[in-house]
Amino acid sequence: MQTKIRPKEILHHRNRRLKRVTLFAVWVGLMYVVYWWTLNQDRVSTDDAFVMGHLIPLKAQTDGIVIEILTENTQYAQKGEVLVRLDGVHAQIALQEAEAELGEIVRNLVSLTAKVDTLKQRIIAKQAALNQVRHDLDRFKAAAHDGAVSDQQVQNTQDKIRELEAVIRENQAEKNSVEAQIAGIPIDNHPATEKAKSRVRAAFLNFQRRNIVAPVSGYVAKRKVEVGDSVKPGVPLLAIVPLDDLWVDANFLETQVADIRPGQTADIRVDAYGNDLIYHGIVQGISPGTGSTFALLPTDNATGNFIHVAERVQVRIGLNPEELEENPLQPGLSTVTRINIRDAGWPLLASNVSVAGDAYRTGIYQHELDGVEQRIQQIIASNKRMADSGGGGVDG
């Protein structure tokens, strides 16, 4: 039996299904709006936010040729670990030259001290000779009245007295000149010795810095140096990135920052991990100026036509160290950051950025001169001993 087609009934069923679909779509839309409003009514968000960290450059500190590279990109470097070695030939030559100069100066000062003693004895000897000649002159003058001594002999004696007095004055002037150079200061603390000591310390420091060490612990990146490179002080070799001290720099529109305060909590989604992983942070501080203020070429709105552009203010958000340890991040990663402005937070100009981490200080350079003072004292003592004994050569 053939079924009779009823167009009106079919149209009625279709309209009913369409209404149901439409009502369901409207209901889903309303639920989403309610969810979005509930989730975001007390939050401000931006996708102009990036993970930031310390990029610590490692540069050459002395001249030399690279003879060994002990690290590579992506490797972890411990604080104080030697990463690059230079030949240090020029630094070693300079150190030997400075040590020889110190030894030479010490010997010269010992010689000057001995010369003062020599001049003292010479003056005493000439003074004794002068006294004897004066006594002779008195006797010659007494005998001259009786004709026992000629006038010529008296005159010669007087000339001899003037000669001895001149020699004594000359020796005294030379002694004063030498004493002025010594100035009554011990050889170990003499200005010339101190100057030579400083040159030895500087040369020793350059020699020690042929081994380039990591100032902080972190991962190696941007290695530029190669074996055989001739480097000068200040030439960048590589960078070290400590991944345990990261934060987020989030750039919010100026219309969003009115309620942002340091101390408020933040949720961060990193694009690299998707929406399933959420990092929790705390607002550490707000930049004292907009991005255009610190630009290389700041805009000058006093010239030409003005077009209003919404500025952005940078907000620094600290990350949870435990979450970073579980799911490491790298500087430069993009994020979507939301700040909970419902939290009261702290005053607007407050900042809880900590500078207590290793990225803000290092102690590896404090012991670079260890051993140099003993080396200097050894050079001084050996050269004083050699000079006193009349030995030849400069002992470095």
Rank of each mutant, 00 (worst) to 15 (best):
K126T: 11
A356Q: 08
R316T: 08
Q378Y: 06
Q172N: 13
V394K: 03
L55V: 13
P191F: 01
Q132G: 13
D259V: 06
K197R: 15
S45Y: 05
A302G: 14
D136V: 11
V235M: 09
E72P: 00
V270S: 00
H54I: 07
Q374H: 06
M1I: 11
D358R: 04
T62K: 05
I317D: 02
T255C: 07
Q314N: 11
E72G: 12
L349T: 14
R14Y: 15
T71E: 00
K224S: 10
N40Y: 12
K4N: 11
L277T: 13
V394G: 05
G184L: 09
Y273G: 04
T193Q: 02
L86K: 00
F306N: 05
L349M: 11
G80E: 03
T293H: 06
V116T: 14
T193R: 00
V309I: 15
V309K: 04
F294R: 07
V89D: 12
W27F: 14
T3P: 13
L55Q: 11
G393F: 09
T3D: 09
Y273A: 03
G393D: 06
E322R: 12
L39N: 10
A344L: 14
E373M: 06
V89Y: 11
E194I: 15
M386Y: 08
G103R: 02
Q155P: 07
Y279D: 05
Q61Y: 02
A250L: 04
E226K: 10
A310H: 08
G274A: 08
V313A: 09
D244A: 02
Q127N: 14
Q132A: 13
G345P: 07
H308Q: 13
I268E: 00
S230M: 08
S389Y: 06
T265D: 09
Q284T: 08
G53V: 09
I185K: 04
P236M: 09
E373S: 04
R139T: 13
R269T: 10
W346L: 14
V110F: 07
E170I: 09
I317W: 02
G29D: 05
K232C: 04
L83Y: 01
N131W: 09
Y365C: 01
G396C: 07
W346A: 10
A381R: 12
K224F: 08
E99N: 09
Q158F: 06
I260P: 01
V26M: 14
P236E: 10
L296E: 11
N171I: 04
G274R: 05
P7F: 06
A91C: 04
I286R: 06
V116Q: 05
F294L: 14
E97H: 11
A310L: 13
S334G: 10
E104Y: 13
V315N: 03
D63C: 03
Y35G: 03
K126G: 05
L23R: 12
A98I: 00
